[in-house]
């Protein structure tokens, strides 16, 4: 028995894509494999690490805990969509660069999307709030100090 494929239309970073995927295709895999948007990383694939975090209608969600079929009708924003319109780095990306907020970069896309939405809701976080903003994302390299600094720097730049 061949598996049923679903025709779906996804809007990612403002661009409309039509794809044919089985219902079990996770949004994270659809982005990476079907759309070639490999900026979204997958680590644990069960919601714990945060590397796959994307914005769904502006709110951070785990792309590994969402089926692509369930994202129909929503606006998806990935790390590729965080640059300024002229292609230069967006404020959160710029802050990561300035503060050395990454080493291997595996976790970075999830931090960038999470912090982008976090600063929109709370543009001037306290140090404690900046820590809390990234508490749901894991990084195995940096020790988090420079990531928290980057949150604070991004708040200045935004």
């Amino acid at each position: 028995m061949s598996e049923t494929l679903h025709e779906l239309r996804l809007v990612v970073n403002g661009v409309t894509h039509d794809l044919r995927v089985p219902a079990r295709r996770l949004l994270s895999d659809a982005l990476r494999q079907d759309l070639g948007l490999t900026g979204t990383h997958v680590g644990c694939e069960h919601g714990v690490c945060g590397a796959c975090t994307v914005l769904l209608d502006g709110r951070p969600v785990r792309a590994c805990l969402l089926f692509a079929v369930s994202a129909v009708g929503c606006e998806v924003t990935t790390v590729e969509g965080l640059t300024n319109p002229d292609g230069s780095l967006g404020p959160v990306q710029q802050a990561f660069l300035e503060c050395h907020g990454l080493q291997c970069g595996f976790c970075t896309p999830g931090f960038l999307t999470t912090i982008t939405a976090g600063l929109r809701d709370n543009p001037a976080p306290t140090h404690e709030e900046a820590r809390e903003m990234v508490a749901g994302n894991l990084c195995r390299c940096t020790g988090y100090q420079n990531i928290v600094r980057a949150v604070e720097r991004a708040a200045e730049l935004s």
Partner: peptide
């Protein structure tokens, strides 16, 4: 039933659950 999927999808991905039909209530 699939609601937010924040508990069900990990179970599916780890194949601790393999339902034949998913009824998405969203």
């Amino acid at each position: 039933v699939l609601a937010g999927g924040q508990s069900l999808v990990p179970l599916l991905s780890m194949r601790l659950a393999a339902p034949s039909t998913i009824v998405d209530i969203n």
